[in-house]
């Protein structure tokens, strides 16, 4: 418990350092653009593939679990849409990104710590925490909502293709279903969650990397911890945010 509190204190102090006034704005701008490519753009592939197949599976499962003449088939489209928007494209996608982006951030910053590159930055008058972490946070906060939107669209397309190919629903019914009783707020809800999760992934992973002590073994350990802690926090905040935003 005491260890947990002291870790939490260190985390808050680090964030304070991260959000203190940057020295040279132009350099930060360039870094942020680069991180958008590394952390955001390079995740489009994995998000697309996974969303496509998850959309496909969700549709088929909805179809086979509601094989009942009373239910109109367009509800399959509706079910697919809502599961993807409400849960998959925000929370599950965030868990996947925690694995990909989180471990990447922790090992990059951790390696810089153990090879004294962070010390070298400090010696050059750079606020290393802010210089290394702030561009990553801003980049993911801006880019991840876009990933969520991509995931929603691709997921629904995946559902449509699998549903029609498997013959469980006609194309017209599916398209009718995904428009039926559409609540635009669900998209907002999904984006809000994504922004929260992006902050959790980036800041928690950066924290793990920044305070690595030792050698490459510890860097590996930090990157594992980054994934585990940010995943657990995502699950926890998923419940809290859902209660706050949907009740």
């Amino acid at each position: 418990m005491i260890r947990f509190l002291s870790q939490l204190g260190r985390y808050v102090l680090l964030l304070q350092k991260v959000f203190s006034k940057p020295e040279k704005a132009s350099i930060y701008y360039r870094q942020t653009m680069q991180e958008m490519i590394y952390l955001g753009f390079n995740s489009i592939g994995i998000i697309t593939i996974i969303s496509f197949f998850m959309g496909a599976v969700i549709t088929l499962q909805t179809a086979y679990n509601t094989e009942n003449p009373i239910y109109p088939t367009y509800l399959i489209g509706l079910g697919c849409r809502d599961s993807i928007i409400l849960e998959f494209s925000s929370s599950v996608a965030a868990l996947i990104l925690a694995g990909k982006v989180g471990s990447n951030i922790a090992s990059e910053i951790g390696t810089m710590r153990v090879t004294e590159q962070i010390d070298a930055l400090e010696m050059m008058g750079v606020n290393s925490a802010s210089y290394l972490i702030l561009p990553k946070i801003i980049a993911t906060l801006l880019f991840n909502p876009l990933l969520t939107l991509i995931s929603i669209i691709v997921g629904i397309i995946g559902g449509w293709i699998s549903g029609t190919l498997a013959g469980v629903i006609t194309s017209e019914d599916f398209i009718y279903g995904i428009q039926y009783a559409f609540v635009p707020y669900y998209i907002t809800y999904s984006i809000i969650k994504t922004v929260f999760f992006a902050f959790i992934i980036t800041s928690v992973s950066a924290f793990q990397g920044y305070y690595v002590d030792g050698g490459s073994l510890e860097v590996g350990r930090a990157s594992t911890k980054a994934v585990v802690f940010s995943s657990v926090l995502i699950l926890l905040f998923n419940v809290i945010l859902t209660q706050l935003l949907l009740s």
């Binding site: 390696t111 810089m112 004294e116 590159q117 010390d119 070298a120």
Partner: peptide
């Protein structure tokens, strides 16, 4: 000059 050079990779 750091022990491991500490050049930015």
């Amino acid at each position: 000059l750091f022990q491991g050079s500490a050049l930015f990779d």
